[in-house]
Amino acid sequence: MTRDDDQRPASADGDDQLLVLPDELRDELKEPMGPIETDADRLLEAVDGPLIAVGDIVTYHLLQAGRRPDVALVDGRTKRSAVDEEIREAVTSGASIEVRNPPAELSAPVVRALRRALSTAEPTTVLVDGEEDLVALPAIAAAPEGASVVYGQPDEGMVHVVVTDDDRTAMRELLERFEGDTDRFWALLDG
Rank of each mutant, 00 (worst) to 15 (best):
A141D: 07
R68M: 06
D16Q: 13
N101Q: 10
D15N: 04
G55P: 03
R172A: 03
T124N: 01
G94M: 07
P35A: 14
G55H: 02
A136D: 00
A46Q: 13
A104W: 08
V20G: 05
V161I: 14
G130A: 08
A139Q: 09
A72P: 04
L188P: 00
G130Y: 05
M158A: 04
R77N: 11
V110R: 07
A139S: 14
L44N: 04
T125E: 04
P103D: 07
P9F: 09
R177I: 01
S119R: 12
R42P: 04
A143K: 10
A141V: 08
E179K: 06
D5A: 10
D190L: 10
L29A: 13
G94N: 04
V159I: 14
R88T: 00
V161K: 03
D129G: 07
D15W: 10
E173N: 11
D15H: 14
H160I: 06
V163D: 15
R184C: 06
K79I: 00
P109I: 12
A170L: 07
A10D: 04
R177C: 08
D48S: 12
L114S: 00
P144G: 14
A141K: 05
E37A: 10
L137E: 01
T59P: 02
A143I: 11
V110W: 06
I140T: 07
A12E: 00
E131L: 12
D155P: 09
V47Y: 08
E145S: 08
E45M: 07
A46V: 05
A187M: 05
S96W: 00
T182A: 12
Q153V: 11
V58P: 00
A113W: 03
V110S: 13
T38Q: 10
A108P: 01
E156W: 11
L134A: 12
D167V: 06
G66F: 00
V74W: 08
A108W: 06
Q7C: 11
D167M: 04
R8Q: 15
A136S: 09
L19P: 04
A104C: 06
D16E: 11
D56A: 10
E28K: 14
Y60W: 11
I36N: 09
G49A: 06
N101F: 06
V71L: 08
T59E: 02
E173D: 15
L63G: 05
D155N: 15
A65N: 03
N101G: 11
D181P: 10
I57K: 00
L62S: 01
E176F: 02
P22A: 13
G94T: 10
G157A: 12
G55C: 01
T78N: 14
G191D: 11
V71R: 04
V110I: 13
I87D: 03
D166N: 02
G76M: 11
S93H: 12
E122I: 02
K30C: 08
T59M: 01
S11I: 01
E156P: 09
G14W: 00
F185Y: 15
A117G: 07
A40D: 03
S148K: 04
G14Q: 02
